[in-house]
Amino acid sequence: MSLFWRIFALNAVVLGAATALLLWAPVTVSVPVLLTEAIILVGGLVVMLVANAALLRLGLAPLGRLTKLMTTVDLLRPGQRLPASGGGEITEVIRTFNAMLERLEHERATSSARALLAQEAERRRIAQELHDEVGQSMTAILLELKRASDEAPPPLREQLHEVQEITRESLDEVRRLARRLRPGVLDDLGLVSALISLTEDFATHTGLQVTRRLDADLPVLEPETELVLYRVAQESMTNVARHADATQVTVALRHTDDRVVLAVTDDGCGVEAPREGAGIRGMRERALLIGGSLEITTAPDSGTRVQLTAPVSRKQP
């Protein structure tokens, strides 16, 4: 039944009941209208309006649910759908909206994948240039400074030593930036070694206590899955250092059935409703890239827990 005929039928039922009541009920209207007659008429009108409103609300309820979903839907949280059963115009609208959501989610996932892969390729290129060009140039400068300091008189030698230390610290910073842009240990030694290196570097530069709980018997993962897990851990710890006011961070990685679960938990101030900033939305896009899901909740002992659940997509060793 179409929406027009559904509303028409509802109103016809209400008006028909009111007409039948007037025809067969022992009620008359005097001129002028008596108080008891006015009360009966007004009461009947109220009952008719209430019944009409209730029936219309029942008939148009699917449109209300559809409107609510339209205002709250987020393409980074796929799978939000409305049940569509039966026939009629409203059901067809819901089916069309569900199909549109599915198409938009697919297009968003595809475009995000292209953007993230291009971003990683650019990071790899910049990290390679930092390592090969800038790093080698600064290493050559260090060698020249050492040679010059060995031949310089004592007053100048002390100044050259200070310049050497500044250059050496700058070289270490360049290497650290290159590792953040593209961790070579991830390609060479795997995800667990890369997370160990990441947490050690994080603890050194922030002074926070880091606890690692990493399963050693992880299955062989696709490179994209390992990279997403690494980037989510990296972004989560960066958020802890910037916003959490924490003293301790726990990084856990475990394998359950056909999934790998990464959890980064801190003991900081916690969040009730985390703001979906660029960092969090970037993590959600990375999770969608590998078919995973990201959850940000309050940790049991206050603080915040970021959990990424990724399906295991095995590759040939």
Score class of each variant (00 low, 15 high):
I141S: 10
E129L: 10
T206W: 04
L41M: 07
L117N: 10
D74T: 02
W5S: 07
G291R: 02
L308Y: 01
R65S: 15
P223K: 02
V50N: 03
E295N: 07
L22C: 09
I296R: 07
R275Y: 06
D150R: 12
M237V: 10
L288Y: 02
V42Y: 06
T91Y: 00
S85K: 04
P26T: 06
A99Y: 00
E37S: 12
D267K: 03
D258L: 00
M48G: 15
L101P: 01
E107L: 10
A246T: 08
E37N: 10
K146I: 05
P26C: 05
L143Q: 13
A127N: 03
N11D: 07
K315F: 10
R305V: 11
I290Q: 01
L21W: 12
G59K: 01
G64V: 14
L82Y: 00
D267L: 03
L198G: 00
V260Y: 05
I40Y: 08
R176G: 11
G43Q: 09
V47Q: 02
K146P: 01
R176K: 05
L186G: 07
R213M: 08
V232L: 10
V33R: 09
V163N: 03
L289A: 15
G291Y: 01
I196Q: 15
P62R: 02
H106S: 11
M283W: 00
L142F: 09
I39L: 15
T67A: 14
V33K: 04
Q159N: 12
G279W: 02
P26M: 04
L229T: 04
G64R: 08
A278K: 13
T304C: 06
L63K: 01
I141T: 14
N98F: 09
E133L: 12
H255C: 08
Q307A: 06
E122P: 00
M237P: 14
R179A: 12
S293K: 03
G207N: 04
V232H: 11
L288Q: 11
G270S: 07
E169L: 14
V163L: 15
G135S: 10
A25E: 05
F4Y: 06
L116H: 03
K68L: 13
V210G: 05
I90M: 00
T19S: 08
E272H: 12
A20H: 01
E224L: 13
V271N: 04
D132E: 08
R179H: 10
L253A: 08
R242G: 05
G88Y: 00
L294Y: 08
M48T: 15
D132I: 09
F97R: 09
K146A: 14
H255Y: 09
A9V: 00
T225N: 11
M70L: 08
V42W: 06
E235Q: 10
A115Q: 10
E144I: 04
A140W: 12
I40D: 02
A109P: 01
G279K: 03
M283D: 00
V174E: 02
A99K: 01
R147D: 14
P26Y: 06
G303D: 08
S111L: 14
V29W: 03
A121G: 10
E200G: 08
V134A: 15
W5P: 00
R180D: 10
R125C: 10
G277M: 02
P311Q: 06
L76R: 11
S302F: 03
E144P: 00
L63V: 07
H255P: 11
M237C: 13
V163Y: 09
S85C: 02
R95L: 13
F202Y: 15
V228A: 09
S293E: 10
V42D: 04
